[in-house]
C-alpha cells in the first residue's frame, strides 16, 4: 500500500525521460530557429556595409543603372543594382505568366477532366520535373534553348528570353501542384450544383471552380514567383551575365542571383566590390520575405471571405 503511494509521489523514470525528450526535441527546433535568425543577421550585416561603411546612397544603389564596382565615380563606386533587379523581376514575371496557363490547364486535367490519367501520368510527370536538378535545366538551356534563340533572333542567344524558357519549365510543377491543391479544396457540391443547374463542364470550371479557388491559385503563383526569383545556377547559365540595363529580351543581361554566383568568388571579403554583392544577397533575402508575406496575406484574405 505504502509502496504505491510512494511510487506515485516520487519522480518516475518515465517523467525523467519525458523531460529529457522534451528538452532535446526543443533544442532541435530552437536550433533551426537560430539558423534562420543567423541567416538574417549575417547577410544583413554584410549587406548593409555598402551603405554604412562604404557610404553608398541607398537610392543610388537601388536606382543606379551602372554596375561596375571596380570603377569609382565622385569617390563612390559604381554600384547601381537596377539592371539586376530589373532582370530578376522581368524573368520572374515572364516565366510565371508563361507557366500560368499551362499550370492551370494541367491542374484542371488532374482534378476535373481526367483524374485517373492525372494520378497515373501527370502526377509522376510533375514529380519528375520538380526532381530534375537545376544545373541540368541550366545545361539543357545552354545546349538547346540558347542555340535555338540564336538561330531565331541572331546575336548570342543568351538573355532574358532564354532564362524565361528555362524558368518556365522549372516553376511549372510548383504552380501546377499547388493549383491542384487549391482546386481540390473546392467542395464537390459546388460542382454538382452547377452541373445540375444545366451548366456545361467548362462553364462550371470557369465560373465556379476557378473562381472559388482564386486565393489558392494566387498563392500558387506567388510560390512559383518565389522559386523563379531565387533560382540561381540555371538562370546564370543562360542569361548572359552582362550587368547592363536590359534593352532587349534576347540580349545578354543579368539577375541578382547570376551576379552573385559569379561575383562572390572573384572579390575579397570586406572590399566595396564584395559588400555590394552582399547587398544584392540582402535584396534576395528581403524579396523572399516579401513573397512569404504575400502568401500569408492571401491566406488571411481567403479566410475572411469564407
Amino acid at each position: 500500500m505504502d509502496k504505491i503511494r510512494e511510487s506515485i509521489l516520487t519522480k518516475s523514470h518515465a517523467s525523467k525521460l519525458e523531460r529529457r525528450g522534451k528538452i532535446i526535441s526543443f533544442m532541435c527546433l530552437g536550433g533551426i530557429c537560430l539558423i534562420v535568425l543567423a541567416i538574417f543577421i549575417f547577410i544583413a550585416y554584410r549587406g548593409l556595409a555598402t551603405f554604412t561603411s562604404d557610404h553608398v546612397s541607398i537610392f543610388k544603389f537601388l536606382g543606379g543603372t551602372k554596375w561596375n564596382p571596380e570603377v569609382t565615380e565622385n569617390g563612390h563606386p559604381l554600384v547601381g543594382a537596377l539592371p539586376m533587379i530589373t532582370g530578376s523581376f522581368l524573368i520572374t514575371i515572364l516565366a510565371t505568366l508563361l507557366a500560368l496557363p499551362f499550370a492551370i490547364g494541367t491542374a484542371l486535367m488532374m482534378t476535373d477532366i481526367t483524374p485517373k490519367m492525372g494520378t497515373r501520368i501527370l502526377q509522376p510527370v510533375l514529380e519528375l520535373l520538380v526532381g530534375i536538378p537545376s544545373v541540368v535545366y541550366g545545361f539543357v538551356g545552354l545546349t538547346v534553348v540558347v542555340p535555338f534563340m540564336r538561330s531565331i533572333f541572331g546575336g548570342s542567344g543568351f538573355g532574358i528570353l532564354a532564362g524565361t524558357f528555362v524558368l518556365f519549365v522549372m516553376v511549372l510543377p510548383t504552380i501546377t501542384s499547388m493549383t491542384v491543391d487549391a482546386l481540390k479544396s473546392v467542395p464537390k457540391d459546388y460542382r454538382s450544383a452547377s452541373l445540375a443547374l444545366g451548366a456545361t463542364r467548362w462553364q462550371t470550371i470557369y465560373k465556379v471552380v476557378l473562381r472559388t479557388a482564386t486565393p489558392g491559385i494566387l498563392t500558387a503563383i506567388v510560390f512559383g514567383m518565389a522559386r523563379a526569383f531565387g533560382e540561381a545556377l540555371a538562370v546564370q547559365m543562360v542569361v548572359g551575365n552582362a550587368a547592363l540595363m536590359p534593352t532587349s529580351l534576347v540580349a545578354p543581361a543579368s539577375t541578382l542571383t547570376s551576379v552573385l554566383t559569379t561575383g562572390i568568388g572573384n572579390t575579397v571579403l570586406g572590399t566595396v566590390q564584395n559588400d555590394a554583392l552582399w547587398s544584392l544577397a540582402l535584396i534576395l533575402l528581403l524579396m523572399s520575405l516579401a513573397f512569404n508575406l504575400a502568401i500569408h496575406l492571401i491566406a488571411k484574405r481567403g479566410e475572411l471571405k469564407r
Binding site: 533551426i32 539558423i35 534562420v36 541567416i39 547577410i43 510560390f223 518565389a226 526569383f229 531565387g230 533560382e231 540561381a232 545556377l233 542571383t257 552573385l260 554566383t261 544577397a281 534576395l284 533575402l285 523572399s288 520575405l289 513573397f291 512569404n292
Partner: peptide, 9 residues
C-alpha cells in the same frame, strides 16, 4: 521562411 529561401542565399 527557411524553406522558401533561395538556395544560393
Amino acid at each position: 521562411i527557411l524553406s522558401s529561401l533561395p538556395s544560393v542565399v
